[in-house]
Design a protein around this nucleic acid. Structure first.
Length: 422
RNA sequence: GGAGAGGUCGCGUAGUCUGGCCUAGCGCGCACGCCUGGAGAGCGUGUUCACCGAAAGGUGACGAGGGUUCGAAUCCCUCCCUCUCCGCCA
């Protein structure tokens, strides 16, 4: 949610932001109109309520039965007016909130203008694309050949875009998750294990509802939704909280599976395990003071980069352009690792400063140490890292001429003695 | 899932039966001041948030949402959560 005051005071800035994001319509005028109407009604109805409160108090003290009845009758009419105005107010406010709820965050001024992902800017590349003495296989050949990825079984028990990991493959994924969480621990993040299902309110707070409803799985009978990312429960942890300034910044890391219907991406990346309806991810998350969120973003990007580097993967850092920016993000870096088998850069991390966008929706504030007014925190999130793609990169980069896959050094403590998958 | 007890301004509680001096009392904590060589004790003052308003001021919030009423923390309905017991169960 962006600040209504910002729309009031700088409507041009908001309009430009929305058009930079390639939104066709910018409902700024409509918001201002509704806001105007809202304040008008509030003034009317509150004046009436003040009158009713005063007279009602009087009635309680009145002795004369007839005069008393007259006042009661008069207040009955006032009550009817109040009910009518309250109803109007409710309608105006719900219209206003409906629109505000789908306005994305304002891009940071450093975000380059661009139409879509083709206009993203590669900031730098770390490492070199590895050279092979043989033709490296894509993971969709490598996995089944090694017996560690089974596509048919996934389709059999659940459906398309599902797969089963087996033996050393399942173990490799578990090793990646454990190693990553331990690494983030050392980087200062507190590990969290959260529910994988949340209520609608929590999804609203994180900015997933109402806009991305179509991409979410939901229980048919209850208000329970499968999380599309750990960012959602991690935002929810402090929903409606007031945090002491001394406790900031807060760093969390969590592993969760992520569930996405991928309606928008139907037909994309159908080959392999790159895009499924269920995937595992380790997420980094921060709550901090507004003045520190830029520095925290850079630190989180370094933390994600370290994760790629320690795995020995070649990666590049990409700055998202305005048109490719996510709904809640004000600025985003993607980290992509090189996958020599499928011959492409795979996005394994997306690191964003969400500023106060989620904090407003989820009502997360902090109390300044100097006793000043409560302020909204800033939140940041970043994958550290996304599983199937990191898994793909490890398989494809560490494959040998004989078709086996060597386990990266850092993962060995979790592999139970397995050094090579063959 | 069944029965019962609860949810009040940081924490703990009073208030609910009997609607209106509840403009939500008291204790603890916290902040400031007085006192003190200093500290403690004591005394005094203050101590939620959101919204509307230039301000004065006003409105709303007693788990959430509805209803009754001139007026609801208080009465009625629905839901959520916590605790105790029972049932079921990894």
């Amino acid at each position: 949610m962006i600040d209504l005051n910002l729309i009031r005071e700088q409507p041009q800035l908001v309009k430009k932001s929305l058009s930079d994001r390639q939104m066709e319509t910018t409902p700024v005028e409509q918001i201002l109109e509704l806001d105007e109407k809202r304040r008008e009604i509030i003034q009317q109805v509150e004046a009436l309520k003040a009158e009713r409160n005063a007279v009602s108090k009087e009635i309680g003290r009145m002795k004369d039965a007839q005069a008393r009845q007259e006042k009661i009758d008069a207040m009955k009419k006032v009550g009817e007016q109040i009910a009518e105005l309250d109803e109007n107010l409710r309608i105006v406010e719900s219209e206003l909130n409906e629109i505000l709820a789908i306005i994305p965050n304002i891009p940071d001024e450093r975000v380059p203008y661009g139409k879509d992902e083709h206009d993203n800017v590669v900031l730098r590349t770390v490492g070199e694309k590895p050279k092979f003495s043989f033709e490296p296989l894509p993971h969709w050949d490598l996995g089944p050949r090694l017996g560690i990825i089974n596509f048919e079984q996934g389709v059999k028990i659940t459906g398309s875009r599902f797969y089963v990991l087996s033996g050393a493959g399942a173990r490799l994924q578990r090793a990646l998750i454990s190693w990553m969480i331990d690494l983030h621990n050392r980087q200062g993040y507190t590990e969290k294990y959260t529910p994988f299902m949340v209520k609608g309110e929590t999804l609203f707070g994180a900015g997933q509802l109402p806009k991305f409803q179509d991409n979410l799985y939901k229980d048919h009978e209850e208000d329970l939704w499968m999380v599309p990312t750990a960012e959602v429960p991690l935002t929810g942890l402090h929903m409606n909280d007031v945090i002491d300034e001394a406790d900031l910044p807060i760093y969390y890391a969590a592993y969760t599976p992520c569930f996405r219907r991928e309606k928008m991406s139907a037909g994309r990346d159908v080959r392999g395990i790159k895009r499924g309806h269920q995937f595992d991810k380790v997420e980094m998350y921060k709550y901090c003071k507004p003045e520190n969120s830029n520095d925290e973003l850079e630190k989180m990007r370094q933390d994600a980069e370290q994760t790629c580097a320690e795995l020995g993967l070649t990666y590049r850092v990409v700055q998202l352009c305005s048109g490719d920016l996510g709904f809640g993000a004000s600025i985003t870096y993607d980290i992509e690792v090189w996958a020599p088998g499928c011959n492409e850069w795979l996005e394994v991390s997306s690191i964003s400063n969400v500023t106060d966008f989620q904090a407003r929706r989820a009502n997360i504030k902090y109390r300044p140490s100097d006793g000043g007014k409560l302020r909204y925190v800033h939140t940041l999130n970043g994958s550290g890292l996304g599983m199937p793609r990191t898994f793909i990169a490890v398989l494809e980069n560490y494959q040998q001429a004989d078709g086996s896959v060597v386990i990266p050094q850092v993962l060995k403590p979790w592999m139970g003695g397995i050094e090579v998958i063959r």
